[in-house]
Amino acid sequence: MPFAEEEIRLDLACRREPDGHWRGTVSVSVDARALWRLGLHPDQPSSLVDGPSPPAWWHAAGQRYATRRQPVVKRHAS
């Protein structure tokens, strides 16, 4: 793993939903110096937008796929 144990922090927050079910959220934090070591910082070239945004239909299609309630069935050729 590229990070030492003391460079990572995991937090768990739990709460009870109105319907009585429990919900948990995990947060992962990594020390900024560890990210710099890997070249992940605001000045890196890939952190800036370097081209045009995708067309509006692309975003709309992503939203439709994300909110689709039916499970995706993958069919394999036999």
Rank of each mutant, 00 (worst) to 15 (best):
A4H: 08
A4S: 12
A4F: 04
E5N: 09
E5I: 03
E5D: 13
E6Y: 08
E6A: 08
E7S: 02
I8Q: 06
R9Y: 01
R9F: 01
L10D: 07
L10T: 06
L10V: 09
L12N: 08
L12W: 08
A13L: 11
A13H: 15
C14S: 11
R15T: 03
R16W: 07
R16K: 09
R16D: 04
R16A: 04
E17W: 01
E17S: 06
E17G: 02
E17D: 05
P18A: 02
G20Q: 00
G20P: 00
H21G: 07
H21C: 09
W22M: 08
W22F: 13
R23T: 06
G24L: 10
G24Y: 13
G24H: 10
G24E: 09
T25L: 12
T25F: 13
T25R: 14
T25V: 13
T25Y: 13
S27H: 08
S27I: 05
S27W: 10
S27K: 13
V28I: 09
V28N: 01
V28C: 04
V28D: 02
S29H: 05
S29E: 07
V30I: 04
V30D: 01
D31W: 06
D31F: 03
D31A: 03
A34H: 03
W36N: 07
R37V: 00
L38V: 01
L38G: 04
L38Y: 02
G39V: 00
G39M: 00
L40H: 07
L40F: 08
H41D: 01
P42L: 04
D43E: 09
Q44G: 11
Q44N: 09
Q44A: 14
P45N: 06
P45D: 09
P45A: 08
S46M: 07
S46Y: 07
S46K: 04
S47F: 07
S47I: 01
L48F: 10
L48G: 03
L48S: 06
L48V: 05
V49Q: 14
V49P: 10
V49E: 08
V49N: 07
V49W: 11
D50K: 04
G51N: 02
G51T: 02
G51M: 02
G51L: 01
P52K: 10
P52F: 01
P52C: 04
P52W: 01
P52I: 01
S53L: 15
S53T: 15
S53Q: 14
S53Y: 15
P54L: 14
P54N: 08
P54E: 07
P55N: 12
A56G: 06
A56H: 14
W57R: 10
W57Q: 11
W57A: 12
W58V: 08
W58I: 06
W58T: 10
H59A: 15
H59W: 15
A60Q: 14
A61N: 10
A61E: 15
G62Y: 05
G62T: 05
G62P: 03
Q63G: 11
R64H: 12
R64T: 06
A66M: 12
A66L: 15
A66P: 06
T67Q: 15
T67H: 15
T67C: 13
T67D: 14
R68D: 15
R68W: 14
R68C: 13
R68N: 13
R68K: 13
R68L: 14
R69N: 10
R69S: 14
R69L: 14
Q70E: 15
Q70P: 05
P71N: 05
V72F: 07
V72T: 08
V72I: 09
V73E: 11
V73F: 09
V73I: 11
V73K: 12
